[in-house]
Design a protein around this nucleic acid. Structure first.
Lengths: 205, 205
DNA sequence: AATAATATCTACTGACGAGTAGATTGCTTG
DNA sequence: CAAGCAATCTACTCGTCAGTAGATATTATT
């Protein structure tokens, strides 16, 4: 807490304030993109929600493409961190994979994760698109690696890692499309439920 | 075959020609939307590919919104037909469900099915959007019905139909995003593979 | 033949929205 | 204090593109 609420902010406070404003722009932008879609959202819309003007957005973030790139990068970074964290989960390879999958699904129901899923590659300018794709490939590879080591220790059935990764990703990305924040089930519950279904398969055991 | 290639077409031939032109516009449109994205595609682009002019498109289909609505409706109709057909497949409820799922995945790798998946609701005008959603709901319900009757006859593990349907749909929609027509595996192979993974689950049996 | 309907074009309008110019105010630091 | 930088605004420009007006040519109908 800031006990000395002086009207003359220090250099550090000013840097923080700037970062906070930048974040606020991104949060508002991503929420608006998720609600109305990127192409249906003008930067004037985003600015209006924040009660600022469009040039102010340009002051904090380059152009509209940059705004979107930042948003998806935040989501992708969260996913990548989840992959790293799950590597140190105790138990079998399958335990580690499932812990990652649950987290993966949860993030995809969050603001920035939602944006990652809902953003089509073509919406970004060529250079940003390349970055976007590269990051997504990284996450795909991380998932495959978890799958491979779980197969190696026998805790997973021997599947084609690539195909399994696509299947899992698809199922766990989809809530980004249908899950509404006000649903009866929490993202956690949904995430666990989906992963359980994928683990067991729909045929009786 | 048209043995009498007269330069004076009959009324029927003219009606057919008109339908063929309309279809050609839709095919070209859907392919361009899938490649570049709906918002990155102008009707001038579509017209140029067909070596016609934009007003000609307006002559066959109302406006851009109509073009998109037609495209997704074709895809959705294919999916609905698949659901109907699978109802008369012999065997257990699980057999019927799996036959539908394979077909469902295949359609989603085809031009019009791809468009259904890649089109976000917000891209359509409010009225079209309502139609789009209603049709998608129909297919969701058809899938749930297949699930329910498979659970009823004991050929499926007792899952929450709604949740299972979302999981399956997600996994089987995803190829619309990553599958490229020139891949090494055919849509059929991919479809069967995905369904097998979903049926068995990733944990060893 | 006259009229109507069909198919297609060129050339326009009009809106929307990304991005910019340039002014203003206030704080900061040599 | 002067010069510079940070934050913000109003008021533009300019390109793109959906959608239209209206002409033209051909075929069908009466």
């Amino acid at each position: 807490m800031n006990t000395t609420a002086s009207p003359f902010p220090s250099a550090v406070q000013r840097r923080n304030a700037r970062a906070a404003k930048r974040d606020a722009v991104l949060r508002t932008a991503v929420q608006t993109f998720n609600e109305r879609g990127f192409h249906q959202t003008s930067l004037d819309d985003v600015a209006a929600r924040l009660r600022i003007s469009k040039p102010t957005i340009y002051h904090y973030l380059g152009n509209k493409d940059q705004v979107l790139l930042e948003c998806v990068t935040i989501g992708l970074t969260q996913l990548l961190e989840a992959a790293e964290e799950s590597r140190s989960v105790p138990g079998t390879g399958a335990d580690r994979l499932m812990s990652f999958l649950v987290r993966y699904a949860e993030i995809n129901m969050d603001d920035f994760g939602r944006c990652v899923i809902r953003t089509a590659d073509e919406a970004l300018a060529p250079e940003s698109r390349a970055q976007f794709r590269a990051r997504k490939r990284q996450i795909d590879l991380a998932m495959r690696a978890l799958i491979e080591s779980a197969i190696a220790d026998g805790s997973l059935a021997p599947h084609d890692p690539k195909m399994l990764a696509f299947t899992l990703a698809g199922a766990l990305n989809w809530p980004a499309r249908w899950h509404e924040a006000d649903g009866t089930q929490s993202p956690q519950e949904i995430a666990r439920h989906l992963v359980a279904i994928l683990a067991q398969g729909f045929l009786p055991r």
